[in-house]
């Protein structure tokens, strides 16, 4: 399965959540591959604790160079060898493969041409052949990366491969409206895809939303709130639920929500069991939400259309 991770706005936690999902799926024995298609600011290396590619890979062998045609294949990093976190060394028994295809240091967005689409299609098809889950982290908004992804998946060789779309958005008014626009609006994913030859209904069924940085009013984080504040929080949450439903991004298309957690917000890092139980810096709710999201990503039932 190829999973495209996208968001309308930056700072939604798209990359950090996707990286955590990739890790959790690999720990559940799946072979997982992560492509950093955030051409303007590749950050997956930093999130995965791989210092050598923290801002993309140097030396002209990353995804940019491959798509531009200057190398025959992009660099693939076996993350079990490169993640600099003691808890993940040596590779946990039974874990699937976890491979990162980093973006390039100093890269930027670039217009796409036909040859680039060919190369991208060849790469994604090969990865889908070798990996159970291929996560493609796209740049925010209606970017060239998004165009490329929609173009490539319309090709016959990839049409047979299961492709799914995750739209990440924060739990705010602006973000809900923006995410709905990105998915269903003018020049949004569904409309652009239909223009490129995708089956409208099939694509519509393959889009799901992930809410990030969602404040959970009942969590201990908010235990010290004044009654008025707590009431306001509940009320706002209910309003946002209504707004989401109105915009077509309600519960029926929701794949998961990840609570507000400083470890995700400030450090943008992997959340391991030790962060929750030993170091006690991350909340166990966050870890549970990421686990549930990883389960649902691979669970066909979660993607069944209503």
């Amino acid at each position: 399965m190829i999973l495209f991770a996208t968001s309308d706005k930056g700072g939604t936690g798209r990359s950090v959540t996707s990286c955590n999902v990739a890790l959790r799926c690999a720990l559940q024995h799946k072979d997982v591959c992560y492509l950093d298609f955030d051409f303007g600011s590749p950050t997956a290396g930093a999130i995965f604790h791989v210092d050598s590619v923290a801002r993309g890979i140097a030396g002209g062998c990353g995804l940019h160079s491959y798509l531009e045609g200057s190398v025959a294949a992009p660099a693939e990093l076996d993350l079990w060898r490169h993640i600099e976190r003691a808890e993940l060394q040596p590779r946990p028994a039974g874990a699937g493969r976890l491979v990162l295809l980093p973006g390039e240091e100093g890269g930027g967005e670039f217009p796409i041409d036909d040859e680039m689409i060919d190369r991208c299609q060849r790469l994604l098809r090969r990865l889908a052949e070798e990996f159970e889950l291929v996560i493609v982290d796209l740049s925010a908004g209606r970017s060239y990366a998004l165009q490329l992804a929609l173009e490539v998946t319309a090709r016959p060789a990839l049409r047979a491969v299961t492709t799914r779309w995750l739209v990440f958005h924060r739990w705010t008014r602006q973000h809900i409206i923006a995410a709905a626009g990105l998915a269903y609006g003018e020049h949004g994913i569904v409309a652009t895809a239909a223009a490129k030859g995708h089956n409208h209904d099939r694509l519509d069924d393959s889009v799901r939303f992930v809410r990030t940085a969602v404040p959970a009013p009942e969590s201990p984080q908010f235990a010290s709130l004044l009654p008025t504040q707590a009431a306001w929080l509940q009320e706002t949450d209910a309003e946002l639920q209504k707004l989401a439903a109105r915009r077509g991004v309600g519960r029926s298309v929701l794949l998961g929500s990840v609570p507000l957690d400083p470890v995700l917000q400030w450090r943008e890092q992997l959340i391991l069991d030790s962060d929750v139980w030993t170091l006690r810096i991350a909340n166990k709710e966050t870890s549970a939400a990421l686990d549930a999201l990883a389960d649902d990503v691979l669970n066909d039932d979660a993607w069944e259309g209503l």
Binding site: C61, S65, E76, R122, R126, E129, L158, A160
Partner: peptide, 28 residues
């Protein structure tokens, strides 16, 4: 991995394998 300055038979070979695997006869 790295700008291909020398003869890279693996690239030729990998490309051919991709070509076969992309055949419309296969259900992927």
């Amino acid at each position: 991995d790295g700008p291909g300055a020398v003869l890279d038979l693996g690239a030729v070979c990998g490309r051919l394998l991709d070509q076969v695997q992309e055949s419309p006869i296969l259900d992927q």
